[in-house]
């Protein structure tokens, strides 16, 4: 299994504040991996840097051996790195089918959709995230759980190799979390490398075999959830929140 994502010495500063500080890690193809840290640790910034929505001050990001540091977001997507957002984003006035179609119309999505036709391909994806019966309605009237599914569907439309999921469980009930969890596991089984964040450890504990922990923009450790949970710095970082194993 080769390395799919290699992040080296990544640093991002906002004025005097260092959001991400000399951060390095590797992800292997087919891995299922989490990025944890308390609120404000810099997880979203890391995702923004990888997906190209922000440029790092220094450091390199290599995807599949190719340097993608500072590349335009849509180019990175078309190389095979798709992402979702912590706050759900959708095309409010388009139908769910069209929401997915947009991704299928990206240059990477098109290659897959070619044989089937965009609508058909988009329906398949919509079915896989469990929204096919709502294909003709716009997202403004969807419940939050469905919006999270739509997010993943939109990412899938671009046929990603690496999927970055930013807080995919945020704001969901336990039942909804379970549905999304099943969906993510299925995606991973299908061969997508999944990299997800979460600020509540419990969500990730039973899901991912490997976790990267960060705090105040810095890399703390890399290991199994059990190892991470025992780590002193991680515990300190979460201390007082009472959320570690809650």
């Amino acid at each position: 299994m080769g390395v799919i994502l290699e992040v080296k010495n990544l640093t991002k500063k906002y004025g005097g504040l260092t959001a991400v500080n000399d951060f390095s890690f590797e992800i292997k193809r087919g891995e299922f991996i989490g990025l944890i840290g308390p609120n404000g640790a810099g997880k979203t910034t890391v995702f923004n840097l990888i997906s190209g929505f922000q440029r790092p001050n220094s450091g390199t990001i290599r995807f599949d051996g190719k340097d993608i540091t500072g590349m335009a977001p849509y180019k990175i997507v078309n190389l095979g790195v798709a992402r979702t957002f912590q706050l759900v984003r959708s095309f409010k006035l388009l139908t769910l089918l069209d929401n997915i179609s947009v991704s299928c119309l990206s240059s990477r999505g098109k290659k897959v959709a070619k044989g089937h036709g965009v609508d058909e391909y988009a329906s398949t994806i919509l079915a896989s995230v469990g929204l096919v019966d709502k294909a003709r309605i716009p997202p403004i009237i969807l419940p939050h759980g469905d919006l999270r599914k739509l997010q993943i569907g939109k990412a899938l439309g671009t046929n990603p190799q690496l999927l970055l999921l930013d807080e995919p469980f945020s704001g969901l009930s336990h039942e909804e979390q379970d549905v999304i969890t099943d969906l993510i596991i299925k995606l991973h089984d299908d061969g997508v490398t999944v990299f997800m964040t979460g600020h509540v450890l419990r969500e990730l504990m039973h899901l991912v075999p490997r976790v990267i922990a960060m705090h105040q923009g810095k890399f703390i450790m890399d290991g199994t959830p059990q190892e991470v949970a025992k780590n002193k710095i991680v515990l300190e970082a979460y201390l007082g929140k009472g959320e570690v194993f809650a």
């Binding site: 997507v77 078309n78 798709a82 984003r89 991704s103 240059s107 990477r108 999505g109 671009t158």
Partner: peptide, 13 residues
């Protein structure tokens, strides 16, 4: 029109 960042994240140039 609806969400330009979202469109870019969907791989749209």
């Amino acid at each position: 029109r609806d969400d330009d960042i979202g469109a870019e994240a969907s791989g749209i140039n």
